[in-house]
Amino acid sequence: MLSIGEFSKLCEVSTKTLRYYDEMGLIHPDEINPENGYRYYSIKQLQKMLFINRLKSYHFSLEEIKAILELEEAQSEEKLCSALHRKRRDIQEKLDALEYTLKQMSSDIMNLEKGIPIMSYLDRIEVQLVETRPKNILYMRQRMSSDDYAAGYGTYFSRLYEKIATEKLTLLGTPMTIYHSPEYNPAGNDTEFAIPIEETVKGTRDLPGGLCAKSVAKGSYSELTSVYAKLREWVEHEGYALVNSPYEVYVTDPNQVTAPEGNVTEVYFPVKKK
């Protein structure tokens, strides 16, 4: 048997953390002395603790690790493999985002060294006035928190595509998102996911056509905030007023783009002349 101190030293986990893991049910001492309360761990528990440490190094939360540990032995390997695949995708997405940020920083540094203002990129965002045609859209409308967006886009668009395939509906365009909330709320925003189709069925509605200020964002979705700011500035400067919710049309499929730079997103602001 190993004392809690010995176990702590071997696994490089503090005794305070081991007590917390015991409280939340991750790993319990194999034995507790009833007289003095000393905690002891068996040699066999070293492997379990190392497994917990390994999952933590993969950025699994303690709740996720607990759920994995509680899996039945017959299904544990399969479920663990699926969980690792999901976590690897999450980490790769974060790495891609960090790589994009590094490239952006390098570009800003180079421009500053040449005497070019850091925000001069806004001048390169083009805005045009276009007339859009009405669309029949299959839609789902949800209140989405800022943390839900990444997963939500895949979930709701997948459901829409599944309905299109099941009912043999006719696609007329790429996915789009309409933002109905009058202000940004991290706790939840009124978001509509939609795909243009030909047929009028349950779950479709008309998206009116009309005059729109339009811009095209190429690159990471984090760049969309700049595009929105540029569009709003243009609308004000040119004497127009917003008449409906802004929306985005995803020209490229995020699942098919290998790097953030490959994303192409059209942003539309429905407007009228003041």
Rank of each mutant, 00 (worst) to 15 (best):
A97Y: 05
L98R: 11
E99G: 01
E99P: 00
Y100P: 02
Y100I: 00
Y100N: 11
Y100L: 02
Y100M: 08
T101W: 08
L102D: 09
L102G: 00
L102Q: 12
L102C: 10
K103P: 03
K103E: 15
K103G: 14
K103S: 12
Q104C: 06
Q104F: 10
Q104A: 09
M105C: 09
M105G: 02
M105N: 11
M105T: 08
M105R: 10
S106Q: 15
S107Q: 14
S107E: 14
S107W: 11
S107P: 03
S107Y: 11
S107T: 07
D108H: 13
D108R: 12
D108L: 13
I109Q: 06
I109Y: 09
I109K: 11
M110C: 08
M110N: 12
N111H: 13
N111V: 04
N111A: 09
N111Y: 12
L112E: 11
L112H: 03
L112A: 07
E113L: 14
E113D: 10
E113T: 03
K114E: 09
K114T: 05
K114N: 06
G115E: 04
G115S: 03
G115F: 10
G115W: 08
I116F: 07
I116W: 09
I116Y: 07
P117S: 06
P117K: 09
P117V: 05
P117W: 11
I118H: 00
I118F: 01
I118T: 14
I118E: 03
M119I: 08
S120R: 10
S120G: 02
S120L: 09
S120F: 09
Y121E: 03
Y121P: 00
Y121C: 00
Y121S: 05
L122V: 06
L122C: 00
L122K: 07
D123I: 03
D123W: 05
D123F: 00
R124C: 01
R124N: 08
R124T: 14
R124F: 05
R124P: 00
R124V: 07
I125N: 04
I125G: 00
I125H: 03
E126M: 10
E126R: 15
E126Q: 14
E126A: 13
E126C: 07
V127Q: 02
V127H: 01
V127D: 00
V127R: 02
V127Y: 01
V127L: 03
Q128H: 12
Q128L: 07
Q128P: 03
Q128D: 12
Q128S: 13
Q128T: 15
L129T: 05
L129S: 06
L129H: 02
L129D: 04
L129N: 07
L129E: 12
L129R: 09
L129K: 13
L129Q: 07
V130Y: 00
V130G: 01
V130R: 01
E131S: 07
E131Y: 04
T132Y: 01
T132A: 02
T132R: 11
T132I: 04
T132P: 06
T132E: 10
T132H: 00
